[in-house]
């Protein structure tokens, strides 16, 4: 496959940045999208040019490191996959592909296609945990009965890898699917109920302070989420938050 790539290039956080055109030839349809970018970078290095900076780590859809807004969609046109799991067979010979960083005020661009997603970490620090006595008297988690339905929902919420596709896809740059998943995975379990009130209040407060937008329920986040996190998690977070806020 021969492709034209339109890629966002930005030297650093302060640079204005622009879209730059590149040609790549002889791309195998069986390559992953990131392997295709590796080929491009080899070409650029051989020509003495600066390679395109992009995030990646596990390359098997688990770490949540890869991002990229490809042809107008987070993680590209395929469903239920991260960019590293996206294959070039999703494109046609001669295609022009737009490759941009995830855009949000709360995800500032560091370089080229790499964005700073530490705002997610700060939301987690605000309440995305449970406090457990680890001094030797810890109760085995398996000794606490959990309703199967709740366990399944909590597990589904916990599959969120925090990649930020929800924010990138949302027209409002809202992080409510991410925060909803993190709130839900604890709120549904007995271990998480003890700190539930403070957790949701603190995580939502941090989310707002980071500058994410307001959810308007377009559902784009759910469609583009590589792990299929459901909008139910946002509704659950809304209930948890309203109940916690009324408690004071």
């Amino acid at each position: 496959m021969n492709l034209t790539l339109k890629i966002w290039r930005q030297k650093n956080a302060n640079d204005k940045g622009k879209m730059v055109d590149y040609k790549v030839n002889d791309i195998s349809p069986d390559m992953s999208f990131l392997e295709m970018l590796d080929v491009l970078n080899e070409q650029l290095v051989n020509k003495g040019e600066e390679p395109v900076a992009f995030d990646h780590d596990c390359r098997e859809g688990i770490c949540g490191m890869c991002s990229l807004y490809i042809n107008g969609e987070a993680h590209g046109p395929d469903r239920g996959v991260t960019t590293c799991q996206l294959h070039m067979r999703m494109f046609k010979d001669g295609d022009t592909i737009y490759i941009e960083p995830f855009r949000a005020k709360a995800f500032p661009v560091i370089k080229d296609l790499i964005v700073d997603r530490s705002s997610f970490d700060r939301i987690q620090h605000a309440g995305g945990f449970i406090s457990v006595n680890t001094s030797g008297n810890t109760i085995d988690a398996n000794a606490i009965p959990v309703n199967k339905h709740d366990a399944d929902d909590a597990f589904s919420a916990a599959t969120c890898i925090g990649c930020g596709a929800c924010v990138a896809s949302c027209k409002n740059s809202s992080a409510m699917l991410y925060v909803g998943a993190k709130v839900s995975q604890f709120a549904l379990l007995p271990q998480g109920k003890i700190e539930a009130t403070d957790r949701v209040l603190n995580m939502v407060k941090q989310m707002d302070e980071e500058g994410f937008g307001n959810c308007t329920n377009t559902g784009a986040c759910e469609v583009e989420c590589p792990k299929g996190i459901s909008l139910e998690n946002i509704a659950r977070m809304n209930r948890e938050y309203l109940s916690a806020a009324l408690k004071g």
């Binding site: 966002w8 042809n71 107008g72 969609e73 941009e100 896809s169 027209k171 377009t218 469609v223 583009e224």
Partner: peptide, 11 residues
């Protein structure tokens, strides 16, 4: 975004 395909994921 330079290219945004909103119709792919929302009404």
């Amino acid at each position: 975004y330079a290219k945004n395909n909103g119709s792919a994921n929302s009404s």
